[in-house]
């Protein structure tokens, strides 16, 4: 479970339960996550997306963390200083490589603030 990792705890991330096959992660706003005044730090939003992908793969495989190969992020809207949510989807689970994507939203899931695509290596 990603929420037990020291890094997710540093960001205050918790799980708000399954939606379909994968967990929805929630990150409450905190002064320590702020970038420019009044907005969430972009790197923190990206980290939440990445943790959602890792969590989805770990849930699917039931074994330790896959290795990140690379990840691309698009930032669609400024992140306000309110609760943020993220959920990943496994696009393809191969023998060695997983392709996943994730979205991050705040008040309205239909208005994502960022999206990410990730490749992960399975051991």
């Amino acid at each position: 479970m990603i929420v037990r990792t020291p890094y997710a705890q540093m960001l205050g991330i918790r799980s708000v339960g399954l939606d379909g096959d994968t967990d929805v992660l929630m990150m409450p706003a905190a002064a320590s996550l702020e970038g420019r005044s009044g907005f969430l730090y972009g790197g923190v939003i990206a980290s939440l997306l990445e943790l959602a992908c890792l969590e989805a793969v770990a849930q699917d495989r039931g074994e330790p963390w896959p290795k990140p190969i690379n990840m691309s992020f698009d930032f669609l809207r400024g992140g306000k200083m309110i609760d943020s949510y993220a959920q990943a989807r496994l696009v393809r689970v191969g023998r060695r490589v997983v392709n996943a994507d994730a979205i991050c939203w705040q008040a309205d899931r239909d208005k994502p603030i960022a999206t990410g695509r990730m490749h992960l290596l399975l051991d």
Partner: peptide, 25 residues
Amino acid sequence: FAPGFLMDADAGLVSSGPIISLVDA
């Protein structure tokens, strides 16, 4: 480095999250 950067304290596995934030900065 800070202990909060870890994904798995026993395995010494470092999260890539702080790397992304440092790149952004």
